[in-house]
Design a binder for these strands. Structure first.
Lengths: 236, 236
DNA sequence: TTCACAGATATTGTCGTATTTTATGTTTTC
DNA sequence: GAAAACATAAAATACGACAATATCTGTGAA
């Protein structure tokens, strides 16, 4: 195990990264509860690491709002409302550990208004590079075997490029979040045939964006998402 | 200067927090460019700190996607696309340093679809506590002198409570982002009289949410945001 | 009994050094 | 001559000891 993450998030390498990963998962999974104090000495012994390594790991978690250290009082898990839930790593830890269903619902809800808005803006602002990237992703989806990892990767790239075409950096950042959601959904459903069915809907989105019609683009994206929801439910 | 942040984000205390703040600002402001290598020894000398403190500060920045350290190669500023732009601290650094106008536009754009969606969901899911909190914030807005910090604080609380009423944790997390935007906008405009005018619009939102009408709530929120945009433009 | 002050103590914060890792240049062999 | 194995060195990474400090506790006087 290299310790480096797959995608986007914190590239915690080596020993240090593993500790961040483990502690982040524990907190997010509720194994360490908010308000609870963290026993540094015990963790030092458990992982067989030095104080410095543990401290650096906790600094990373503090940067994501998960913990807070106060001199003399100790190090504590912060209340859930302070967690940076939009952070890619926090999201991944949550998906990996617990009540995944509820979280996927919330992610789907966020997608339901972020991606249509992205499509609308993309229709207004896309340039030639954006269109080229979108059609390339579409072609890759069509060419690949629907069950292959290449098809999934192309799907992810499509959604990323769509938000990139909005030329709003904050929306682009949300793409990372959405990709995590899509990846989790795909690994849950494992039904490659969905991709095949989704192709026309994707193509429609590109066409409306290419035409520069924001209303149509928004509707096309809504239709795509609605279809995706149907597909997931039919699998269940 | 205590070094602790105002609101939500990374509570970096003491020496360490100042270094995080300073380096984060430099990167985000373009003083340290993506791809550029960071000279740890020079920074150690500049801030007169030990290797450990600098390392911990860089770990925090790595957690936010701003830098990456590879053994033997060095520590580098990561490409802008890897930055976690939704992170509250990154946002604050960006607002404090550079092309604030462009960023505020992007934030307004995000608000334009996030808050209406939040209002819609709030109308469907709000409970008695949510309504009480919303009306309390409303009353506080009405009672306070429009130019006072209390009025601004009540306004922020209103928008936070609104997204909280959506009962979607990811949306609640976006509240932190929106609050930063609102605070920056207010400090830019400094026009308290806007708040007085905005009261009826806020009240309308609460009423539609209280009535449990998602369509009306979404429209009322759109109207509120449109009015806010007008007000800002009229000040210019 | 209550309040205030001062010292003890436990815990985080900081430092300088040793170790590990790994990209790069060098040599050796086929 | 090319490729692969190997040595080198530069940089991040890990370590243990020491310093700083906020909180708690105990004592004294009002």
């Amino acid at each position: 195990m290299s310790g480096a993450w797959v995608n986007g998030g914190y590239a915690g390498r080596g020993l240090h990264g593993q500790v961040v990963n483990e502690l982040g998962s524990r907190i997010v999974a509720g194994r360490l509860k908010p308000g609870e104090s963290i026993d540094l000495v015990a963790l030092e012994a458990e992982f067989d690491i030095s104080r410095t390594v543990l401290r650096e790991a906790l600094k990373v978690l503090a940067a994501k709002g998960l913990v807070d250290a106060r001199q003399k009082r100790g190090t504590f898990v912060r209340p859930r409302t302070d967690w940076q839930l939009l952070d890619v790593d926090v999201l991944r830890w949550r998906l990996a550990s617990q009540s995944t269903g509820e979280l996927l619902n919330q992610l789907a809800e966020v997608r339901s208004f972020v991606e249509p808005a992205g499509a609308r803006l993309a229709a207004l602002r896309r340039d030639d590079d954006d269109l080229a990237a979108l059609t390339a992703a579409l072609d890759a989806m069509a060419a690949a075997d629907p069950a292959s990892p290449e098809a999934v990767e192309a799907d992810l790239r499509f959604h990323r490029q769509l938000l990139a075409a909005s030329h709003n950096e904050l929306l682009v950042s949300m793409a990372a979040m959405i990709e995590v959601a899509l990846a989790a959904r795909d690994s849950l459903v494992h039904a490659g045939n969905v991709v095949r069915d989704a192709l026309p809907a994707h193509r429609a989105v590109v066409e409306t964006i290419s035409a520069g019609d924001p209303e149509a683009a928004e509707l096309a994206m809504r239709a795509l998402l609605a279809q995706a929801v149907e597909d997931v439910e039919s699998v269940r």
